[in-house]
């Protein structure tokens, strides 16, 4: 720590003031607004907004769609990101180029990504169906089929996101002392064994960060729904965040929107706490074995 003279003792506050002021006005205060709007009605404190919400069948459908999508997308993205990170950590020539290519989709805006995928997966004039016809599988309805639309969104979102999560896991891999691998090699441990018993337990903190950040971003995912499916067909991609967006900007019902956002935040906290617990237990067992 640097020492400050008496005259200078207010300097740190001066340095953090602008950033913290902006954080408060544009990040923390909106949260307070959300709380206020969801709990305060015409006559003071009320739970009316939540009662209305819990009686609403559209809400329950959205909750189910949100859960269904996230049970698949969170483990899927983290698994792929982990594989990518292990691959691009290999000490071979030109690996930097692959690292950049894997990371590339996140640098493209969601608008452009959704547009390109929407056109490629178009049932009548899309290149994917053209190829599927060619190899004999036959054309699919993709975003127009209520059983496929959600999984197509999972595909698009994973194409966009996996490289981003890969970067954090890669950073964790780079921080592992190579001596540990050499020791394992001397012991005759194979690649898979080394990965499971040495690499993964050492990645615990990184994985925890990635799990929390990934969960948050996926539970709140709604741009593909807004740009491609509009929540359809038949509500099959109508996630909660999209409902919150519709409530605020299409139906001008701010208290419903705030109540949904609050439900989402609670959902995120529950899932993240569960993941943290699982991850801790798992690595304890791993450490016990080693």
């Amino acid at each position: 720590m640097l020492h400050l003279s008496r005259k200078m003792r207010f300097l740190p506050y001066l340095l953090i003031l602008p950033a913290l002021l902006l954080l408060f006005v544009f990040k923390l205060y909106p949260i307070i607004i959300t709380l206020r709007e969801s709990f305060i009605g015409k006559n003071g404190l009320t739970l009316k907004n939540f009662q209305l919400l819990f009686k609403d069948s559209i809400f329950w459908n959205s909750l189910m769609v949100t859960l269904k999508m996230n049970i698949v997308i969170i483990p899927l993205q983290i698994f792929i990101a982990l594989i990518f990170a292990l691959l691009v950590n290999a000490p071979i020539r030109g690996i930097g180029i692959f690292r950049t290519i894997f990371y590339l989709p996140i640098t493209i805006s969601a608008t452009v990504s959704c547009l390109v995928w929407n056109v490629m997966l178009n049932p009548n004039s899309g290149v994917v169906n053209s190829f599927l016809n060619y190899i004999g599988i036959g054309a699919q309805d993709f975003f127009l089929d209520k059983n496929q639309a959600l999984w197509c969104i999972v595909l698009v979102a994973s194409w966009i996101g996996c490289g981003y999560w890969m970067m954090f896991i890669l950073a964790g891999l780079k921080n592992i002392d190579p001596v540990l691998y050499e020791a394992a090699m001397v012991d005759g441990s194979g690649w898979l064994h080394t990965t499971l018993t040495i690499t993964l337990p050492l990645l615990k903190n990184v994985l925890l960060f990635v799990f929390v950040a990934n969960t948050t971003s996926n539970i709140l995912l709604f741009v593909p729904m807004q740009l491609i499916t509009n929540g359809g067909p038949q509500g099959s991609t109508d996630v909660l965040m999209f409902e919150a967006y519709l409530s605020a900007f299409k139906y001008y019902d701010r208290s419903r929107s705030s109540a949904i956002v609050l439900v989402l935040l609670v959902l995120i906290i529950i899932i993240c706490a569960f993941q943290a617990k699982m991850l801790n237990e798992k690595s304890d067992r791993g450490a016990g074995k080693a």
């Binding site: 544009f26 990040k27 909106p30 949260i31 965040m241 701010r254 956002v261 989402l264």
Partner: peptide, 17 residues
Amino acid sequence: LSFMIPFEAIALPLYQV
């Protein structure tokens, strides 16, 4: 705390601010 609050969750009240 602020970086755990994702932008999408506050976009709507932020608009009011």
